[in-house]
């Protein structure tokens, strides 16, 4: 995969687990957004678990993408939980005020528990 940004998408019950990897800038945020939305709608998901463990860089384009998915889950009566955030991304969340609206979890399992789902669903 190298330096390319990619995304792994899995559906567990009504939770869409999205795990991007690489650098989340404007170019990739646009592409990841389209892929997340397509699976979210196709699989009639309600919640999004965004696993950031593989993201090595993010700027405010990533913030915009996350706010957009936050609104999307709200419209379907669901929630978005962000897991495995690195220190720099965590700082960006604080600077942009995103920390105030989205829920964070230490890891994917904790996030899944928060969403009331299970990985074996």
């Amino acid at each position: 995969m190298g330096l390319q940004t990619d995304i792994k998408l899995d559906v567990h019950g009504r939770v869409l687990v999205a795990a991007p990897s690489g650098e989340l800038d404007h170019y990739w945020a646009e592409r990841l957004r389209a892929q997340i939305d397509l699976t979210f709608e196709k699989a009639s998901c309600r919640h999004i678990l965004l696993d950031m463990g593989g993201v090595s860089f993010m700027d405010s384009s990533g913030i915009g993408m996350i706010i957009g998915r936050y609104k999307k889950t709200e419209m379907s009566g669901g929630r978005i939980v962000i897991a495995n955030m690195s220190e720099p991304i965590s700082r960006l969340f604080d600077v942009s005020g995103l920390s105030k609206i989205v829920t964070r979890a230490e890891n994917a399992q904790t996030a899944m528990n928060m969403l009331g789902g299970a990985f074996d669903e």
């Binding site: 945020a29 646009e30 405010s60 913030i63 915009g64 993408m65 706010i67 957009g68 600077v95 942009s96």
Partner: peptide, 23 residues
């Protein structure tokens, strides 16, 4: 200003200058 964007259709957060000012 935070949250200012001329392109909301692109899901721009409007936080670019806020991030630059902080960093």
């Amino acid at each position: 200003e935070p949250l200012f964007t001329t392109r909301p259709e692109m899901e721009r957060s409007g936080m670019g200058f806020t991030v630059m000012d902080s960093f």
